[in-house]
Design a binder for these strands. Structure first.
Length: 246
DNA sequence: GCGACAG
DNA sequence: ATCTTGTCGC
């Protein structure tokens, strides 16, 4: 069953919410990944006070160059960029908490259209199922692309949790609803900084999502895929021209 | 009615 | 998210 073309979406918040409820039923929370050879990172930036949406996708080679090390520092620079693309277009919707995917997914899909290297796993800057209707931007994108996705957010949208321990890798479950459903994890990705909110997007379990994020962590707070996509989507890399490396 | 609220 | 100077810390 084909989904409604996102480019045609011109929904009211009420209609968008109804659509999310239907799509949430199609999100898979168990692992169903093909062998991973490339991991993509996705992030969105804005220009001109939000009038222009800028989607960035960075594709990294997996596994990283050097294996057998446990310290992230020893793996510095081992997740190499294979391709990166940027797509700009007029923004379609304002930001509304809970409806982020309607604002960001269309531009993201256009960016994916430009990729020549297709990833087997995607990390998205935002929530996966850790969403009021269990359909955050990572889950929505995963359904659309028919790819496994993981949500890596910098702050909380919903759910309750304890404060994770101080060590890198320490985490606490993110729980929501009257039935205490575990919708994600609050992960200390770096000592001394606010924790990350990791949640399954599509076709990835929570334990695997945490494993993948941990495997992509280096010295920074964000895992390499979303860190590089962030850099590309934000101003620091002004005329970030699309390029294919190697 | 009163907060909370990804990017 | 973005707008922005200085400032604290490794």
């Amino acid at each position: 069953m084909p989904l409604t073309p996102l480019h045609d979406w011109n929904l009211t918040p009420r209609e968008a919410i109804a659509l999310q409820r239907r799509l949430a039923g199609r999100v898979e929370r168990a692992d169903r990944l093909a062998p991973v050879r490339h991991i993509a990172g996705v992030d969105i930036g804005f220009e001109q006070r939000g009038e222009i949406t800028r989607a960035a996708v960075v594709v990294l080679a997996w596994p990283p160059g050097k294996l057998g090390e446990f310290e992230p520092e020893a793996l510095e620079g081992t997740l190499e960029t294979v391709e990166q693309v940027v797509h700009r277009e007029p923004s379609r919707m304002p930001y509304i908490p809970g409806l982020l995917s309607f604002r960001e997914v269309p531009a993201t899909l256009a960016a994916f259209d430009k990729l020549t290297v297709w990833p087997e796993l995607v990390m998205v800057d935002g929530q996966g199922i850790a969403h009021p209707r269990r359909l955050g931007v990572a889950s929505h994108l995963g359904l659309w692309l028919d790819l496994p996705t993981i949500g890596v957010a910098k702050s909380r949208l919903c759910g309750r949790h304890g404060e994770p321990g101080p060590a890198r890798g320490d985490w606490e479950p993110l729980i929501d609803g009257p039935d205490d459903e575990v919708i994600g994890a609050v992960l200390r990705s770096r000592v001394g900084v606010k924790p990350l909110f990791v949640s399954p997007g599509h076709r990835v379990s929570l334990p695997s999502a945490l494993d993948w994020v941990a495997a992509c962590l280096r010295r920074t707070k964000l895992p390499e895929p979303t860190r590089l996509a962030d850099r590309l989507a934000s101003g620091s890399d002004p005329e970030a021209s699309p390029r294919i490396i190697q």
